[in-house]
Design a protein around this nucleic acid. Sequence first.
DNA 1: CTTTTGCTGATTGTCAACAGTTTAAGATCC
DNA 2: GGATCTTAAACTGTTGACAATCAGCAAAAG
Lengths: 228, 228
Amino acid sequence: MSLDIDSALQLRRSQSLTSIIRRELEQMIERGELSAGERLNENALAAKLGVSRGPIREACRGLEQSGLVNVIVNRGVFIRALDGREAAELYEIRAALYGLAGRLLAPIVTDEQVATLARYVDEMDAAMAAGDLNSFYPRNLRFHESIVEFGGNGRLAAECAAIHREMHLLRRRTLDMPGRMETSNDEHRTILERIAARDAAGAEAALEEHVLISRNALFGPLGHYPET
Amino acid sequence: MSLDIDSALQLRRSQSLTSIIRRELEQMIERGELSAGERLNENALAAKLGVSRGPIREACRGLEQSGLVNVIVNRGVFIRALDGREAAELYEIRAALYGLAGRLLAPIVTDEQVATLARYVDEMDAAMAAGDLNSFYPRNLRFHESIVEFGGNGRLAAECAAIHREMHLLRRRTLDMPGRMETSNDEHRTILERIAARDAAGAEAALEEHVLISRNALFGPLGHYPET
DNA sequence: CTTTTGCTGATTGTCAACAGTTTAAGATCC
DNA sequence: GGATCTTAAACTGTTGACAATCAGCAAAAG
């Protein structure tokens, strides 16, 4: 896990140790190597990465601001744990933002972009038929990312990516549920059709609903926020 | 501007210097004491606040992640400047989030909350009649904050506050424009009426439109993003 | 037996110093 | 006079060390 010497020296002209470490920690969280509630030991991390505590601490302050860790004074930094209420809140926001993305994209989408999105959906179908979840998941990610990116609002894309990162703080995954993969891709087809038809309002509604259905698959169709 | 010794020692039991400094810098940006593009000198800041560079740097990494500053390696941290495109993108996101807030609030709003919102609108009318912009602006802020807070999605409120902070990176202010104050409060009344009527879709639409009208007052009603 | 008090080790918060890079002024040359 | 190289000052990136604080445990008091 130690950083390559040559590339590290190259990178340090254009990147600081802090940013490298921050990205490393983000990926560790995304891969689940750091689980929610766990504490980050500054000394241990510094020793493991071969740097001093300064850059580690700076990276942690960045992670704190992006919501991936909690910092308690004189106690340390803890990988943030999303409780049910916070997760539900995030899903609501995510639904609104994806809806916006669909509304933005529909009027300006190119045929080529539609073809790209269609390819993702087809590949998800194939992965589904093969029961290959490890292949399904990245396509699913790319499908949603592409819709947001093609929409042309760069900040929206960044915001959605940040929310997606934060979702990894929740242990349970929606798509792990039996049968969710099939219905999920049906929804993807609906979204695709409405985008291809340049139907802004329809695409917005379909994307919002898609996210909210995912939330309900986790929490059940509640009117209120779940406690845990 | 040096921190009061006694209160500083009190606070250091519950807060780190880093968080104090971060808040201080945020307020400096909000008050316009730090203007866009300006560079932060770590040594000067450290001397001015009576601390070392460590906490300063940590605070800056937090500000970087929340989008208030840009960090260029070996060059320093610069107060971020919002160009027209980024500002327009932010307005789009803000419109969607405020729309969501209205949709969430309408079904659950209490009579007391409606009365509070009505009071803000009345006070804005009074400020308007007196031509008192310095009184209008904080009521306007509280009106929007309250709608988001009453909606019950705490994360949404935090997100809206972050976007609002970021808006201060834009020099021109919407409400400074002649006539905007009047039309703005008309829109507030519409929003209030629809919330009071528990009309979720109507409140959502009114809030979205309100934000987009503000954007257009800045940029003109464009279909595309302005260059500057 | 439970609670409180006082240690001990580990960990965080902060600082001052060092190393490398950028910037800007001055000298040199055309 | 203008351009380019040189050099020094200023600044950032990083480090190691010191002081303050916290968690855990043992001993003493009730």
